[in-house]
Computed example of a mutant assay.
Amino acid sequence: MSSSNSRLLNFPRIALQAVLLVLFGILSESSIHIRYEVEVGGNVTIHCPVEENREIDFLYLQTDKNGFVNGFHSIRPIENTWPNTEMALNNRAVVFYDVKISHSGIYYCIFDYKNNQRRTKEVPLSLSVIAPYSKPSVTSICSQDHLYCHVTCASHDGYPRREMKWNVGQKMNVTSHMWKVLNNSIEKSNSSTGLLSITGTAYFNCSNGELEYNCSVGNANSDNFLICGTEKPPFDVGIVVGSCSVLGVVLMVMLVVLWTKYKKRRLSFLEGVTTDNGGGTKEEIVELKGKNEVNS
């Protein structure tokens, strides 16, 4: 009973701590005034806001996620620094080379001046790593009766997370029943790089005729396309050639059958004529058949 009461008594304190942590996170993010943005694979120099006319005792750049990144100390050497980083600008900045998605996050410049009575300063900085998405590729498929169409747009190798946006019927009033987004999916293009692929599919109701559309992710835009048009499907040479070949074979077979039947009827007719004229020897009949075959 006492343990349950103690938990109840501690509940308001735990709730207050949770609220304070959330507020601290919001305030910490909003209090960051130094922000850097760089494309993946590029280089960036992070400047710590130190006074140029003062001598530095130490300066460290670190992050909550992986701790120490790189730094400088006036007395002892610095070890265990991140690869592809180095100190620059008289030990007042840290350079990142070949930046990766994993480098995104909040960093802290922790520094102090000599003869400053250990008044250490800690300044938060934000590093955003981005990658432009590729121009969306577009594929479409329509029902045989051309009453509706599905269009899929796909864009690859970008960062951070975005949403596939659709621009439909810029030159006309388009209502919600004429088209709608069916789904949007985001997945990693490459697990090692962390880059993302975005795919979106939209449904178009063709009962109102032709619609113009395009799709976009960030600053990457597809071409403009028309959907639900009344034009005939594209001419497919392969299908036409194949159909003609089949038709040609069928016609050849029919001609052979008809010619065979004609020869049999002709032969029967000649035999009947010979018999009606009093018969004749086998040699005469064969000779007559040969002549008629030559004449035919």
Results as ranks from 00 to 15, higher is better:
Tyr60Ile: 08
Glu122Gln: 13
His73Asp: 14
Ser222Tyr: 00
Pro160Met: 02
Thr175Val: 03
Asn184Glu: 14
Thr260Gly: 11
Asp276Thr: 10
Ala18Gly: 14
Val99Ser: 04
Ile34Lys: 14
Ser2Gly: 12
Phe269Ile: 12
Ser268Gly: 07
Leu23Gly: 08
Glu79Leu: 03
Thr175Glu: 04
Leu147Val: 04
Thr85Asp: 09
Asp276Ser: 09
Lys100Met: 13
Gly218Leu: 01
Tyr213Phe: 13
Ser140Thr: 06
Ala220Ser: 09
Leu59Arg: 08
Gly229Tyr: 01
Arg161Asp: 10
Ala154Asn: 00
Val94Tyr: 02
Val250Gln: 05
Glu51Ala: 12
Val129Glu: 00
Val94Phe: 10
Ala18Thr: 07
Ile285Cys: 13
Asp145Thr: 13
Tyr159Leu: 02
Pro124Thr: 05
Gly272Gln: 07
Val168Lys: 00
Thr201Tyr: 01
Met254Tyr: 09
Lys180Tyr: 01
Glu284Ser: 08
Asp98Lys: 10
Ser207Leu: 02
Phe96Ala: 06
Ile34His: 14
Leu270Ser: 07
Arg162His: 08
Phe24Cys: 06
Leu89Gln: 14
Val19Lys: 15
Ser126His: 09
Gly42Tyr: 03
Lys171Trp: 12
Lys114Val: 12
Val95Lys: 13
Thr281Trp: 05
Tyr213Asn: 00
Ser74Tyr: 12
Arg162Gln: 15
Ile14His: 14
Gly200Arg: 00
Asn208Tyr: 12
Leu147Tyr: 09
Ser134Leu: 03
Gly71Cys: 08
Asp276Pro: 01
His146Glu: 10
Phe72Gly: 05
Asn219Arg: 08
Gly71Pro: 03
His33Pro: 05
Asn116Phe: 11
Ala131Lys: 02
Gly42Ala: 09
Leu247Gly: 10
Pro77Thr: 12
Gln62Cys: 05
Tyr108Arg: 15
Arg54Asn: 15
Asn43Thr: 06
Ile106His: 08
Lys289His: 04
Tyr113Gln: 11
Pro12Gln: 10
Val94Trp: 01
Gln117Pro: 05
Thr281Phe: 11
His177Arg: 10
Ile46Met: 14
Ala202Thr: 01
Thr281Ile: 09
Tyr36Pro: 03
Ala131Ile: 01
Asn205Arg: 01
Gly280Cys: 06
Phe24Trp: 12
Leu8His: 12
Thr275Ile: 11
Asn167Glu: 05
Glu52Asn: 11
Val256Ile: 09
Gly41Pro: 08
Glu231Gly: 04
Gln62His: 15
Tyr60Val: 05
Glu52Val: 11
Glu39Gly: 06
Gly272Asp: 10
Phe204Cys: 00
Gly209Pro: 02
His146Tyr: 05
Arg266Lys: 14
Met1Leu: 06
Phe24Met: 06
Leu247Val: 07
Tyr203Asn: 00
Ile106Pro: 02
Gly290Pro: 08
Asn53Met: 10
Pro234Met: 05
Val44Gln: 04
Asn53Gln: 12
Leu211Thr: 00
Asn10Cys: 14
Leu8Phe: 07
Glu287Val: 10
Trp166Arg: 00
Val181Phe: 01
Gln117Ala: 15
Leu16Tyr: 13
Val123Gly: 07
Thr193Ala: 13
Phe72His: 12
Tyr97Thr: 14
Ser31Asp: 09
Val123Lys: 06
Phe225Asn: 03
Ser74Cys: 08
Ile26Trp: 13
Gly242Thr: 04
Lys121Tyr: 04
Glu163Ala: 03
Val69Ala: 07
Val286Glu: 08
Tyr108Cys: 05
Tyr262Cys: 02
Val250Glu: 03
His47Ile: 14
Pro233Gln: 14
Ile141Tyr: 00
Thr201Ile: 04
Tyr36Asn: 12
Asp112Phe: 06
